[in-house]
Amino acid sequence: MKGSGALGNARGIDFQRLAQDFKGLNPNEPGTWPLAPRVAVFAGLLTLTLAAAWWFDWREQAETLKQREAEEVQLRQDWVAKKKEAVNLDEHKRQLAEIDRQFGALLKQLPNRAEMDSLLSDINQAGLGRGLQFELFKPGADQVKDFYAEMPIDVVVTGGYHDLGEFASDVARMPRIVTLNNVALEATKDGRLKLNAKAITYRYLDEEELARRRQAEKAAKGKKR
């Protein structure tokens, strides 16, 4: 039994019959067209409809969906991070308290302006107590930083090798922070050693100095504008 229409028979598609079906079609009476043209038109209309729907509607929805998926991933990551912070909140508080304690201990090692004379005297006495001879002990101008100031002191002192070493150790062990920088040693004619160094000590700024610094910074920002 043979199949009807141009779509095929038992052996395959009859391309001649298929071509004939597309000839002489009346556009005003598509209902009278053979099956093949009607299927082709329907497939074309369906394709155009799907393409139009994608371009004018579905494409934007797909982009929105992709954006929402990315936002969901980010929100999940933020949630996990905040959950970890919440779990470790007590540990963070403990660490913060420890940092505050350590900072307070370091701050106590910085003298205020009124205590600087006493500190300079302690450094001088540390050298004299070791039998050293000061050729120069000259404090310089303060170098103001964020909340503290550095005071450089040019030091030239002579004495024996071990005495100079003990002097450096005494300075390092002082309750106030004092550092020795740019250290240089040279031998003298009498066989002793001369130590050239720049000692630096630190002090914290009092409220008046901090207020002046804030005012100067505010004025500098105003000029930049």
Rank of each mutant, 00 (worst) to 15 (best):
183 V>Y: 14
196 N>L: 09
200 I>E: 14
179 T>M: 13
203 R>Y: 08
211 A>V: 08
178 V>D: 03
191 G>W: 09
195 L>K: 08
197 A>Y: 06
176 R>W: 13
197 A>K: 15
177 I>W: 15
175 P>Y: 00
188 T>I: 06
189 K>N: 06
176 R>T: 04
215 Q>A: 05
198 K>C: 14
214 R>K: 02
183 V>M: 15
196 N>Q: 11
177 I>R: 14
214 R>H: 10
209 E>N: 10
203 R>S: 09
196 N>C: 10
175 P>D: 03
177 I>G: 00
189 K>H: 01
187 A>L: 03
194 K>Y: 10
197 A>H: 01
186 E>N: 09
190 D>E: 10
207 E>K: 13
195 L>G: 02
197 A>M: 11
175 P>K: 08
201 T>L: 12
205 L>H: 06
191 G>M: 13
200 I>R: 08
189 K>A: 12
178 V>Q: 14
189 K>G: 04
208 E>F: 02
182 N>V: 07
188 T>Y: 07
213 R>Y: 11
214 R>D: 11
184 A>T: 09
189 K>D: 07
181 N>G: 13
185 L>S: 09
204 Y>R: 07
182 N>A: 15
209 E>G: 12
206 D>V: 07
196 N>E: 12
210 L>M: 15
195 L>N: 02
183 V>Q: 12
193 L>E: 04
179 T>S: 06
202 Y>G: 04
197 A>N: 15
175 P>E: 04
214 R>V: 03
184 A>C: 03
205 L>R: 06
181 N>T: 06
203 R>E: 10
215 Q>F: 00
178 V>P: 05
185 L>M: 10
206 D>K: 15
178 V>A: 09
201 T>A: 14
196 N>M: 02
209 E>F: 09
193 L>W: 04
205 L>E: 02
184 A>I: 07
200 I>K: 11
202 Y>D: 01
179 T>H: 06
192 R>H: 09
177 I>Y: 14
177 I>M: 13
180 L>G: 05
201 T>M: 15
180 L>W: 14
206 D>C: 02
188 T>Q: 04
185 L>R: 10
187 A>Y: 11
184 A>V: 06
207 E>T: 14
189 K>I: 14
186 E>L: 10
193 L>M: 06
190 D>L: 05
205 L>G: 01
206 D>T: 02
193 L>G: 00
190 D>S: 11
192 R>E: 07
189 K>Q: 08
180 L>M: 13
206 D>H: 08
190 D>F: 02
195 L>S: 12
196 N>H: 14
195 L>F: 03
205 L>N: 03
179 T>P: 01
182 N>S: 14
195 L>A: 09
177 I>F: 10
183 V>W: 12
208 E>Q: 11
176 R>Q: 11
200 I>Y: 11
207 E>L: 04
